[in-house]
Amino acid sequence: MTLEIPFHEWGSASSAAPGILLLQEIFGVSDYIKERAADLHALGYYVIAPEIYWRLDDTELDESAPDLMPRAMGIVQRLDWDQALADSVAALEYLQARGRRTAVVGFCFGGGLGYNVAAVASPDVLVSYYGSALPRLLELRTEAASLHHFGNADAFLDVDAIVPALTSTNTVEVYRYDGAGHAFDNPLPMFHNADASALAWRRTEDFLARHLPTTQG
C-alpha cells in the first residue's frame, strides 16, 4: 500500500516492528515532533509523522518568531478538519496494512485528532497529550487502550470537565500534572514543564510497553 500524504518515517516499513502514527501540534512536524518520533523509534517502533498541513500554502513557521502563536493559529483555522481526519486515517491504514499492531500518538492538536482517528479507524493503542479538540469529540468512543495526559494549570482546556467524560469499556488511563500548563511537553520555554514532561514520557513508555510490546512474548 502506498500513502499519498507526504510523511516522515523512522525505521523501515518492512520491519516487524509495531507501527506508530505520530500526529503533530499546530506547529507542524517541528523539530520537537521529530525528536519525539526518534524517541519512539528508539523504543523499537516504526514511526510515521504525516504532514497534516500539506494541502495548505504558506505554512512555514519560525519557532523563534514573536508571532509564532498567531501564525500557527491562523494556519490551523484554515485547515479542513474532516480532510485532516481522512488523511490521518489513511496514514493509519497504511500502517495497519503492514499486518502489525498500531498506535496513534498525538500532541495538542494531534492529541485531539488522534482521538478522532482512534474512534473511527481502530488502532490498538492511543496516547493523547492534552488533546485540544477533545471538548467537541467526547461523544465519540474508541476501543483502543488509551492514555491521556493533562496539566492541571491548563488555561486552554477545562480539564475538570474533560476527564470524567473519558470513560468507556476499554482500558483508559488519565494522568494530571500539578503546575503544568497546556503543551507542557513542548520544549519551548513558554510551554515547557520539565518535571511533568519527564514523568509523562516515562508513563507513555510504560503504557506502550504494556499495550504495544515490540517483541513477541
Rank of each mutant, 00 (worst) to 15 (best):
residue 171 T to Y: 03
residue 171 T to S: 03
residue 172 V to L: 11
residue 172 V to E: 11
residue 172 V to R: 01
residue 172 V to Y: 14
residue 172 V to W: 13
residue 173 E to S: 14
residue 173 E to T: 06
residue 174 V to I: 15
residue 174 V to L: 03
residue 174 V to C: 03
residue 174 V to A: 00
residue 175 Y to T: 03
residue 176 R to D: 06
residue 176 R to S: 15
residue 177 Y to Q: 04
residue 177 Y to T: 07
residue 177 Y to V: 05
residue 177 Y to M: 08
residue 178 D to F: 02
residue 178 D to P: 00
residue 178 D to S: 12
residue 178 D to Y: 02
residue 178 D to L: 14
residue 179 G to A: 10
residue 179 G to P: 05
residue 180 A to L: 06
residue 180 A to G: 02
residue 180 A to R: 01
residue 181 G to H: 02
residue 181 G to P: 02
residue 181 G to K: 03
residue 182 H to R: 08
residue 183 A to N: 08
residue 183 A to E: 10
residue 183 A to I: 02
residue 183 A to H: 02
residue 184 F to G: 14
residue 185 D to M: 15
residue 185 D to W: 08
residue 185 D to Q: 15
residue 186 N to C: 15
residue 187 P to I: 05
residue 187 P to T: 04
residue 187 P to L: 06
residue 187 P to E: 00
residue 187 P to F: 13
residue 188 L to C: 05
residue 188 L to Q: 07
residue 189 P to W: 07
residue 189 P to G: 04
residue 189 P to E: 02
residue 190 M to K: 09
residue 190 M to Q: 10
residue 190 M to P: 00
residue 191 F to P: 00
residue 191 F to A: 07
residue 191 F to L: 05
residue 191 F to N: 01
residue 192 H to P: 00
residue 193 N to F: 00
residue 193 N to L: 03
residue 193 N to S: 13
residue 194 A to I: 04
residue 194 A to C: 06
residue 194 A to W: 04
residue 195 D to P: 00
residue 196 A to L: 10
residue 196 A to W: 11
residue 196 A to D: 12
residue 197 S to R: 09
residue 197 S to F: 05
residue 197 S to T: 01
residue 197 S to L: 04
residue 198 A to C: 03
residue 198 A to W: 13
residue 198 A to Y: 12
residue 198 A to T: 06
residue 198 A to N: 08
residue 198 A to H: 14
residue 199 L to M: 12
residue 199 L to W: 04
residue 200 A to M: 10
residue 200 A to G: 09
residue 201 W to Y: 15
residue 201 W to Q: 02
residue 202 R to T: 09
residue 202 R to N: 09
residue 203 R to V: 08
residue 204 T to N: 11
residue 205 E to K: 11
residue 205 E to H: 06
residue 205 E to M: 11
residue 205 E to F: 02
residue 205 E to Q: 11
residue 206 D to M: 12
residue 207 F to E: 00
residue 207 F to Q: 00
residue 207 F to I: 11
residue 207 F to K: 00
residue 208 L to M: 13
residue 209 A to L: 03
residue 210 R to W: 09
residue 210 R to V: 11
residue 210 R to F: 09
residue 210 R to C: 12
